[in-house]
Design a protein around this nucleic acid. Structure first.
Lengths: 222, 222
DNA sequence: GTCAAAATATACACTTAGTGTAAACTTCGC
DNA sequence: GCGAAGTTTACACTAAGTGTATATTTTGAC
């Protein structure tokens, strides 16, 4: 069996050739679950598909599904590896000089959403987002706990680096709150632009878009 | 019994004296459910309190709870009467000249969140939001379906009134998407400012805050 | 006051998301 | 090939939320 396994592994794992069999199967399983989930939702609609349906299609138990994804929506949206407080703080503390800290945060959030190494799954996901746009808003529990983490992490950072605040009149906690809301918004706008139009929307573009939208004449700071 | 009922009704319904007994009881029940829910969560924590606990405390059946609120979190956050597409469109079509359409939308969303006519419940809610800030992010299903409705309504409006667009380069749907995200964000920021600080934060303030945050030097439009 | 109609509340059974546990199985390093 | 470590599964469980049919309460007209 070893050589057959080897062969399949070489075929499918384009990006990471030196993967162990365990990790290879894990990755393949994750993609299979995502693929089946997306396919079923495209065919039958979000509410018509249960987690157990997805499990049957992917030929796994329900528990295994929830070993891979924290929720039904996570499997569809491809949220994974959402950063924890430590990672965010490390990134902020170690960042280079270009742009303000919000760029880092917004970029981080964007980089963790819907980033797929499988073209097939990426295509299906874009289709689901077009067909069921409510998913952007319905399934944000993950983003929200991410938001909580963000507030914590950014708040702590700003407390230690008060000169980095963008809004000097505001307390660090409050600015952290705004930062997190805006970061998630921008990630959402990026995802929407990409899902609807296909072309890539950079963090800076999304930020400028939202800023221009909120203050079209630019007279917030005269 | 008629005179006793009358008396109680006069005592408690400060704002609307000419309420029928049915509506009076409905309002009293709603406030009682909210009060018990908030009290229990303050005492034991969000995850430790089930809907059935709240029902026991309020002496109602579970079904009655869900007749009043669409979800556990709705009872805690006080989201209710979230606008439907018709109402939004009507408001937009009939609005007066001051401010752009986004002000109307943002103001509408803000006006429907956590607006309570009972001081006791308002105080408890502020405490819960301080103790369990995750609720801001955890329980946004309602806001999200509201978001879907907003996108629909605003998108249609912009299609009919393209000259009202704030970002002329963008399609109406996309601007509607951004509008909805920003509107909900601003409502959230308002709620946060009020819950954390106590003082009132107007929609314009929240919008300026977010705009200033996203574009502190004001060089999006030079 | 009484009575029919409308609105509400309740009991009960049900679906689904998500978790915990212990046993069986698979991969890994040696 | 062998033991340790990681994964999957079956199974039992909790809790949110829905649907239905029945009982209760309010209302408005007489």
């Amino acid at each position: 069996m070893a050589s057959a396994d080897e062969e399949i592994r070489d075929d499918a794992s384009k990006a990471s050739p030196a993967l162990g069999l365990r990790d290879y199967k894990k990755r393949r399983m994750r993609l299979e679950i995502e693929r089946q989930a997306l396919r079923l939702v495209i065919e039958h609609g979000y509410d018509q598909v249960t987690v157990e349906d997805i499990c049957s299609a992917a030929e796994i138990s329900k528990k295994t599904f929830f070993n891979y994804f924290p929720s039904k929506i996570a499997a569809l949206m491809g949220f994974r590896n959402l950063p924890d407080a430590e990672e965010i703080v490390a990134l902020l503390e170690g960042r280079q000089g270009d742009g303000d800290y919000f760029d880092v945060v917004a970029r981080l959030m964007g980089s963790r959403m819907s980033l797929d190494d499988d073209d097939d799954v990426t295509r299906l996901r874009a289709e689901v987002m077009r067909l069921v746009p409510q998913l952007f808003f319905h399934g944000q529990k993950e983003l929200f706990s991410a938001h909580g983490v963000l507030v914590q992490a950014v708040g702590g950072y700003l407390e230690r680096h008060p000169q980095e605040r963008i809004l000097e009149d505001l307390s660090p906690e409050r600015e952290a709150f705004i930062a997190s809301s805006a970061a998630i918004d921008i990630a959402r706008i990026q995802a929407m632009m990409q899902a609807c139009g296909g072309e890539r929307c950079e963090v800076g573009d999304a930020r400028r878009l939202l800023a221009a939208y909120l203050d079209p004449q630019g007279h917030v700071r005269p």
